[in-house]
Amino acid sequence: MSEAVRVSGLTKTYPARRGGARVVAVKDVSFELARGESLGLVGESGSGKTTLARMLVGLARPDTGTIVIDGRTRQGKERGRAARLRRAKEVQMVFQDPYGSLDRRLSVEAALRDVLRRHLPDPAKETVRARISELMGHVGLSGKHLGSRPHELSGGQRQRVAIAKALAVDPAVLVLDEAVSALDVSVQAQILALLNRIRAETGVSLVFVTHDLAVVNEVTGQILVMYKGEAVERGATAEVLRRPRHPYTDMLLSSAPGPNWQPERVAELRAAFAGAP
């Protein structure tokens, strides 16, 4: 059995605004993710973590490098309905903004039915209905929300619907792009627990893209730290967070508010870091 994700030598550059050299967003990043495992992709804004995630799901095309998901090499130039549906089954994504990630015209039920009709091998009415209630159970929403439209739901409920829609495709990998950052902590905790449970129950592999190390600590086994487009540290989450090897990881950890947090020390570290080659 191959890994769920194998990425090697991924690079992406963007044209600079006014001539000049191209801006490197992601530079020679490689990693693997075993099936049913979860990976945290962390970094600050501009670290390239979001670009990496968008390449992973196919919303951006890498300049060089290969992405293998679920044993198949992803290619940008596939056309046709069958290829599109197959790619969909490989990887899905949940976005940060709970307000914009749902089609505001569709009720929860209509949105789920829309996905299922496209992706279930047997889209009969009963199978669709059974799968909808199964999905609602997975994400912890009760049947009374089926008729609700996005504006009638809270931020946390919308994210649950977004997760249900992604799971409806039955993907091998689910990428969560800052999916809990906009939520209150109590709601955030519920969603994280939910994702842990879903991973255990369905065996889906998770990639968490986030700036929040504590979130990564709660839900991932592996971690990849990005800095200026490069993967500066990789390893088991618990290990990296306890004993960071790269000075950037160390600085990120010192920056996170906690019992021994000293903003003055972070400022010193950062100044030293900016001065270093």
């Binding site: 914009g100 089609d103 496209r118 992706h119």
Partner: peptide, 21 residues
């Protein structure tokens, strides 16, 4: 808006995405 990306990732083609959603 991200929901458009979500439709793309579900395998919805361009014409259908424009016309239907």
């Amino acid at each position: 808006r991200p929901y458009v990306d979500a439709y793309r990732l579900q395998g919805v083609g361009g014409v259908q995405l424009i016309g239907r959603y």
